[in-house]
């Protein structure tokens, strides 16, 4: 448990709370038992699917039920469905878990389930051309939007950042890498102590420099300017200092490589 304040409750108040909970416990256990025995019996029906929705809305941490839900889709719901129907089933799955995610932004199982859904979006609606990726593109674009909303709510949520990197790396139509620089600039300008955004920036720059898409020396000059601004705003903030440390270190590296290249070209 994290960040749950202790509240002094009288014995009477606790007793009353437990009394109220008894009916809930009974329902919860009945639903759990029903689902676990259906799972044992390989019940892949829509009815069982709807029951998993009910249970997961109460307890999104119940990983076995998420597994069962996916098994029902794979074995019961997908086989008789057209690609179009599968696509809309997965789209509604993603909407349902968006609500769950807002309430439980740090529950790994929900993020996993979304990833599984994305990866199961069929190709289409067309057979070829731009339409071939239509459904996939629409779902992945929306996913990026959702993860940005999650990072607006908590800019340090590392599950959301991990998921963002996954989405960016696996989108059917890749976004230019520099757009991630724009995104991190925006995050950093909103809050200089967002180390998650600084970290992301270090990774994006490294990849852009390694691929030769951007000139490290030029970038570093501009970057020192940004860092100086941040330090001026809050000199005690660790995030900026850590990023500065990286920038200085990477600078040495690339300056050395650059100098060697120059040396080589003059020698030639």
């Amino acid at each position: 448990m994290h960040g749950v304040k202790r509240v002094g409750q009288s014995k009477e108040a606790l007793g009353a709370k437990k009394q109220r909970e008894q009916a809930k416990i009974k329902d919860y256990l009945a639903l759990t038992d029903d689902l676990l025995s259906r799972k044992k019996d390989k019940d892949w029906s829509k009815e069982a699917f709807d029951l998993t929705t009910r249970l997961l809305q109460v307890n999104p941490e119940f990983y076995t039920i998420w597994n069962y839900r996916r098994s029902i889709m794979l074995n019961g719901l997908f086989p008789p469905s057209s690609p179009e129907e599968i696509n809309s089933l997965l789209a509604s799955e993603l909407s349902m878990t968006t609500a769950a995610l807002k309430a439980h932004p740090k529950v790994y199982w929900i993020w996993n389930h979304r990833q599984w859904c994305l990866e199961n979006v069929p190709e289409g609606p067309g057979q070829d051309g731009a339409d071939f990726h239509g459904w996939r593109k629409a779902n992945w674009d929306r996913e990026l939007y959702v993860v940005e909303k999650m990072l607006d709510a908590d800019a340090r949520n590392f599950l959301a950042w991990n998921y963002r990197r996954y989405v960016l790396a696996s989108m059917p139509i890749q976004r230019p890498k520099v757009s991630e620089l724009t995104y991190t600039t925006r995050k950093i300008e909103t809050n200089f102590s967002n180390f998650s955004a600084w970290h992301q920036r270090s990774k994006v720059y490294t990849s852009l420099w390694d691929s030769g898409s951007l000139d490290p020396i030029k970038c570093q000059e501009e970057e020192f300017e940004l860092v100086r601004n941040a330090m001026y705003t809050d000199p005690n903030d660790q995030s900026v200092w850590m990023y500065h440390r990286w920038l200085v270190g990477s600078g040495k590296l690339y300056i050395t490589v650059g100098a060697l290249r120059q040396l080589n070209s003059t020698a030639l």
């Binding site: 590392f158 950042w161 991990n162 990197r165 996954y166 180390f195 998650s196 970290h199 992301q200 270090s202 990774k203 850590m242 440390r245 990286w246 270190g249 990477s250």
Partner: peptide, 16 residues
């Protein structure tokens, strides 16, 4: 492994 010497949950992830 990241520049700060730490490790993340996956490749590219922030040290934690």
């Amino acid at each position: 492994k990241n520049f700060d010497g730490g490790f993340g949950a996956r490749i590219g992830a922030e040290s934690h």
